[in-house]
Nucleic acid binder design. Structure first.
Lengths: 336, 336
DNA sequence: CCCGTCCGTTGAATCGATTCAAGCACATGG
DNA sequence: CCATGTGCTTGAATCGATTCAACGGACGGG
């Protein structure tokens, strides 16, 4: 059960130091010694103990990615991108889910701090970053994902959510709609408030256009359906003709509520719908949904890139802020 | 940067052993000593080093969950259930994605072995379990998730996929269909072959009923669409009137291919469609999809339960096999 | 007043890999 | 033949938390 360097060393007839060198700097060791050690490793089924290695190194070869919602395909794609880039650098990514709860987020950060991970990629639940600053003080760099961190000293990778919100609203306005609704929440989530801000700005540019906010507790299919039910009478009564949803899950839920049940609403004839994230389900929806696309995997890989920089620079280097531009994918939910 | 038990001990005017006791067995320490130590911890911002703790303990307080596809909501729900149960036991779950690739699976297992995780919950890509047996030999228990392991010495949590496949096919037969198609693959994935087996058995019970297999390379929306395109002419030409999809992603893709484009097919009038997993998107599909439901979160929490048992029993205890029964959720894709 | 308990506390030993100053053997040059 | 390298290898020290045999002091019983 306990196969350690010591056993391997004994078996190969060398010292523990040599075994370690074979593992980490084989070029400093005579070739046939290397072979003998490898043979011993093979025979004993030796697997290095990561904990010991890490204890000595003071830092682990793994990164943590804390996302707001693993159920959201957007984040799993970001994770995919991060994993791929990390693998190139010989590191692994642990995925954790905060479920938009500050407590769960704190719990995960606590554990990662104990594990002394090499870095934390996080899409924070709240504005407050003191927790992350404490981490950095302890030598663990962090990079904010999907959230710009202008003022703070953290690097960040984000997509311009204000531009994205504007893109969505402008498209509805361009296709002749004037009474818009924005569905999303809670507003304390930066992405939501930014998208709303962008949509507001776009609406403000067009005279007679209005934008009404419908808050939600979370961004899920169910909440979308609930919002859709609430919107249904308003579309006929108050003439709402365009809806911007803060993400695609909401949009899909909204669509379902509008198109089914008694007295269905025609889309895009009576109302146009724009989602956000362009998850694959958006293209396969009842009426395929126009959506704002973000370069998901690129976000993940870039985040890893930045954290590697931050780790190399001993935390000294200037923080970098990478901002990607969103794009609009037009589908049948807004144009015939 | 280096705040260790030693500093805390010095600050509080006690020995390192006492600090450790305060952390792990506070009831053995005099209350006001506990307070002094806590104060020192607070002042110094001490966070225990997980690597050191783990090195000593020989095992970490974390579990690994290796799934076939993080993009599939089925698995994220299983993960949620596992996380919740693990949290109760004071453990964390690291989520890893094998993407149905044996190489990626092996890579993850390798890393988890090095990390000496407390246990591995895995939905294996292939039948071959020698890799897991090597893990167990090293003292790391494993539990198979979503896969029965009758003969082997591993505990498992699964859903009776044969019964599920039969449930799906029988429902189509009960609603009058006779020429069925099964879409899914690759067949080396046990879930797929079991579901197919169940469907075959159900079909064999009814005279004149037939079942045709359509293999896929993976279980994704895109592969579903491809299969749907291939099925389209066959429905009109050879009279296929019922489709069993090996999971909901495939089903959604199939549906999309059938309902759109030139010459759409009416559902459920011309063809009935049954999916598998009952992910939330299935209920929100163009025509809501009848699907075989599995108790997803329960699967995750039960798996953690079993691994805790296995870990306690020093690997000695008998392996347990928990098999849940699937149920059918009937929607508009099969009945008017 | 002495002895045995019990409670709280101590600190050296331990886990396993890495590091690095020191050592060894052999070769090369003067 | 000695001095100086050069190329490999050695093994004790180290990382930080936990464990456990041992210890000191207080207390009660005899």
């Amino acid at each position: 059960m306990a196969v350690s360097v010591r056993e391997v060393a004994a078996r190969a007839g060398v010292s523990v130091g040599t075994v370690s060198n074979v593992l980490n700097r084989p070029e400093h060791v005579k070739p046939d010694t290397v072979d003998r050690v490898h043979a011993a490793i093979e025979e004993l089924g030796y697997v290095p103990n990561g904990a010991a290695r890490q204890l000595r190194a003071g830092r682990s070869r793994s990164l943590a990615l804390v996302v707001l919602d693993v159920g959201n395909p957007f984040f799993t794609d970001v994770a995919r991108g991060a994993e791929a880039r990390a693998a190139e650098a010989g590191m692994t990514v642990f995925l954790a889910n905060s479920d938009e709860s500050p407590e769960r987020e704190a719990m995960h950060l606590e554990i990662f701090e104990q594990q002394r991970v090499g870095g934390v990629l996080i899409s924070p639940v709240e504005e407050d970053l003191t927790r992350l600053e404490a981490l950095r003080a302890r030598g663990i760099p962090a990079v904010l994902v999907d959230r710009e961190a202008g003022a703070s000293a953290f690097s960040s990778v984000s997509v311009d959510d204000v531009a994205g919100g504007a893109l969505a609203a402008r498209h509805l306005l361009d296709t002749g709609r004037r009474r818009l609704a924005f569905v999303g929440g809670p507003l304390r989530i930066r992405q939501v408030s930014d998208r709303f801000k962008g949509a507001s700005a776009a609406v403000a540019d067009v005279s007679e256009a209005t934008l009404q906010l419908f808050g939600t507790d979370e961004m899920s299919l169910d909440e979308g359906r609930r919002a859709g039910e609430a919107l249904k009478p308003l579309i006929r009564d108050t003439g709402i003709d365009g809806i911007v949803a803060a993400n695609d899950l909401l949009a899909i839920g909204i669509q379902r509520a509008l198109l089914f049940g008694p007295d269905p609403i025609r889309m895009p004839a009576e109302v146009g719908l724009v989602g956000y994230d362009d998850i694959s389900f958006a293209a396969s929806a009842v009426v395929p949904i126009t959506s704002v696309r973000q370069p998901r995997e690129l976000i993940g890989s870039t985040a890893v890139e930045l954290i590697l920089e931050a780790a190399d620079g001993d935390g000294a280097g200037e923080p970098r802020h990478v901002v990607f531009e969103p794009s609009l994918v037009v589908r049948a939910s807004t144009v015939a």
